[in-house]
Amino acid sequence: MNTQAIPPLSKDAPTVLEMTNISKSFGAVTALVDVSIKLRQGEVLALVGDNGAGKSTLIKILSGFHQPDTGTIVSQGKEVRFASPRDARAQGIETVYQDLALVGDLSVFHNMFLGREYHKRFLGLNLLDNRKMREQAQLYLDTLGITIPSVNSTVDLLSGGQRQCIAVARSIYSSPKILVLDEPLAALGVRESAHVLGLIQNLRQQRQVSVILIVHNYNQIFEVCDRINFLHAGEVALDASTADTSEEELIRIVKSGLGTRAIEAAAAEIRPGLV
C-alpha cells in the first residue's frame, strides 16, 4: 500500500475526543474500570485486547448505546452526554458495530439511510424519497468500489463480507468527525480487507477524520494505525505509538500474559518515555 505517502500526525493536532475514567458494569460483570482514551484530529487509534476485554463496551458508550456508570466524554472541547445513538450521530460520531446493525428485512439502500432518511413532500405528506436514496446509495457504493448485486436486494440475502462493506460505507457516507469501527474486517476476505484498509488509509492521508479501529491482526494495525491502546481486563494496559514500537515488541508484550502492572513495566522497559 501507499504507506510512504502517509504524512506523520502533526505534533500539534488538537485532541478531538477524550474519554476519562470510564467505568461500566453489567450486573455482576465488570466490563470497564476507569478507562481513559484520547484521540487526536486525523489520528487512527487501534484498540486491541482479548475477547471480553471491554473494547465493544467502550465504543458502545462512545456511540451512545450504553451509558457509562462513571466517567466523562469530552468531544471537540465540550463535555457531552449521549442518551442514545441518535445524539452521538448528531455530533458526527459514526460507529460500525461488531454486529453491523443492519436490518435484514430492509433493502441495502434503506439500510444505508436508516435514521437519516431523505424525504420529499407529496400532497403535503412527508414521504420517503426512495428514488434519491437508491441513487445515492448506488453512487456512493460505486465511488467506494463496493460491489453488490443490487441496492434493492434485502440485506439478509447478502454475504457476510458484503454486509460488512455496506456497514462501513454507511458510516463513512455522512462525513463523520469521528469514525469507530468494531472489527470491521472480521468477515472479509483478503481482497475485501485490503479494500476497507485502503479506505481507512485514505482517511488517514487527509487527516480530517479521526478513527478508532478495533482489530486483531497486527500487520493490519501497523499498516494503518498511528497509535495502539491495549485493553486488558477492563483497563488500558498499554498506550504506544506504532512509529516507536515494532511489531515483535508489541506481540511480545501482549502475549506475555503478565498482569497489568507488569505489562506497563515491560512497556516502559522497551520504550522509555512513551506517552
Binding site: F65, L102, G104, L106, E117, N126, L127
Partner: peptide, 25 residues
C-alpha cells in the same frame, strides 16, 4: 412502505438491537 415511521417499524421487528444501535427509537 413510504414513510420513515414504516421503515422504523420494520427495523424494530427485524433487528431490534441493530435498529437501536443505529438510532431507531
Amino acid at each position: 412502505s413510504r414513510t420513515t415511521f414504516g421503515l422504523h417499524t420494520i427495523a424494530t421487528g427485524s433487528n431490534i438491537i441493530g435498529a437501536r444501535e443505529i438510532g431507531v427509537r
